[in-house]
Design a protein around this nucleic acid. Structure first.
Lengths: 232, 232
DNA sequence: CGCGCCAATTTGTGATCACAAATATCCTTG
DNA sequence: CAAGGATATTTGTGATCACAAATTGGCGCG
């Protein structure tokens, strides 16, 4: 089995284990693994030019974070995504990212607001160009810049794990879903931050996530498994 | 350094790694590690009679779950608990356990309600005897029986990780906080379940967690670290 | 031609070794 | 006596080996 992984060399991670972790994380985010795909320790090690040791530890961590799952036969695979699971993750994300947005509104500074406004502009620009790769990257940056503003490190860490689970499936929002959306939600969010209105900020983020993941969930029938298209 | 760990023999876990994981988890829950305590791989391995390999993987998982934290010097330690962190965990738990309670109310069966009623009785009985060890165990069982009723496996897994982080500090609720509490909240929760009122169930759980963790948070001054008394 | 059984291979797990970084200890020096 | 540096020990990391469980492939039997 060959595994589509970039070399680990470029990263700044101190240990090989962390480089393998980042490499797998990146591949997952870009949707390079098929849902249900089985991964073997040795094939990952070969693809990255390391022994089994760092791979084992990286897989253990990613499994704890829900990015992979262990099967009874002890092998690791990419979780299958069902409609029910998308809905579950949607509700969790609405709760936690809504909470982070509310706390962010309480700690926000003018500098952070300027940063978010800049990112919002870049998202609109990328969308007008039809550049969904940059679009996705900037959306992620926008959200996590907001969440980190909350100062709640445990909360941010949990949200990162959730994005790792839903990440590949967010590709399905492009291009149909995002078409015509002109960032009105982000504009209202920034207004809420400027006014220090935590409840409004929470509502904007909650609505955004709820709508997007409801759209993704509806792409699968009730029992069906959602496939992932390769990242562009 | 000696580590207070029971032998791994009794467990039914398939792999040594899982036995080490369960062993460390149990020790954490019982508050056998001091906050800030540094743990070395070899000392844990010696205490459990295994080599470093299973310990490394168990620690990696527990670190990903937030039960331990890695220091820049690569060593693993028990996280220090501050007032701000307790408040953060409180708000996350209110959100997620409230959500689980609401979903549980939508899926609850008469059998589950009977099971919860039985547990509620056992909690009251233990409390009247002043048996806080049984009290804590039954409280945990009550909560997770409720949460599992939601059928949301990812959500339950996240809540388990949260309990692992706050677990030792819940000992601080005994005996002062629980004294005089006669389980009125649990009675109202069960009523809400019987009536299939998700919003009421959420409110009961949310209030319970908010009050308990606010009490714990107030045990520390603003910058201070909260110590943990040994489990009885 | 299809199904089940057995051998060959793959794969996960755990122990051990080597090495470098971090930590502790001791000795010297001011 | 205190402080700084050299040495010794501890500790985390990664590679390799051995072994057992799981998987695969092919063969023979029905």
């Amino acid at each position: 089995m060959t595994v589509p992984l970039a070399s680990v060399a470029s990263d700044t991670a101190a240990t090989l284990r962390e480089q393998v972790y980042e490499s797998l994380r990146e591949a997952l985010t870009q949707g390079k693994f098929a849902p249900g795909q089985k991964l073997t320790i040795r094939s990952i090690g070969n693809a990255l030019g390391v022994s089994v040791m760092p791979v084992r530890e990286a897989l253990r961590r990613l499994t704890a974070e829900g990015a992979f799952e262990m099967q009874p036969n002890r092998s690791v695979r990419v979780p299958l995504m069902t409609r029910a699971k998308i809905v579950e993750l949607r509700d969790i994300r609405v709760a936690l990212e809504g909470l982070a947005a509310e706390r962010a509104a309480e700690h926000v500074t003018p500098e952070k607001i300027a940063e978010l406004q800049q990112l919002a502009l870049e998202i609109v620009a990328a969308r007008e160009r039809g550049d969904s790769a940059i679009d996705r990257i900037k959306i992620r940056e926008f959200h996590f810049t907001l969440y980190r503003t909350s100062g709640q490190t445990t909360l941010v860490r949990m949200i990162e794990a959730l994005w790792l689970q839903t990440g590949p499936y967010m590709n399905l929002l492009f291009p149909a879903y995002v078409r015509g959306r002109r960032g009105e939600g982000r504009r209202r969010l920034i207004q809420a931050l400027q006014a220090r209105e935590g409840a409004s900020a929470r509502r904007e983020i909650a609505d955004d996530i709820r709508e997007a993941l409801t759209y993704v969930a509806d792409l699968a029938d009730d029992e069906g498994v959602i496939g992932v298209k390769a990242a562009r």
